[in-house]
């Protein structure tokens, strides 16, 4: 038995979509931005802080 197709929507209107909405409509762009910001400011910077600590040998 062939897979029934889900319901389809009509085509959207030709009205220009604002750039902000076009950005928000791209989940993978948001995903990359979220990962990059976290990787740079929290993880990357934090690792640099820890790895650049001078060793503290016991007296």
């Amino acid at each position: 038995m062939s897979e029934p197709t889900p319901p389809r929507a009509d085509d959207s209107s030709s009205e220009e979509i604002p750039w902000g909405q076009r950005l928000f409509d791209r989940p993978f762009v948001l995903l990359v931005l979220g990962i990059v910001v976290m990787a740079v400011f929290f993880t990357g910077w934090g690792l640099w802080e820890v790895l650049s600590l001078p060793p503290a040998p016991l007296p």
Partner: peptide
């Protein structure tokens, strides 16, 4: 995330989610 791609491709909704 794959279901979002499929829904958009198969036009099961219009406009933004």
């Amino acid at each position: 995330f794959a279901s979002l791609v499929v829904a958009k491709r198969e036009k099961t909704y219009e406009g933004s989610v």
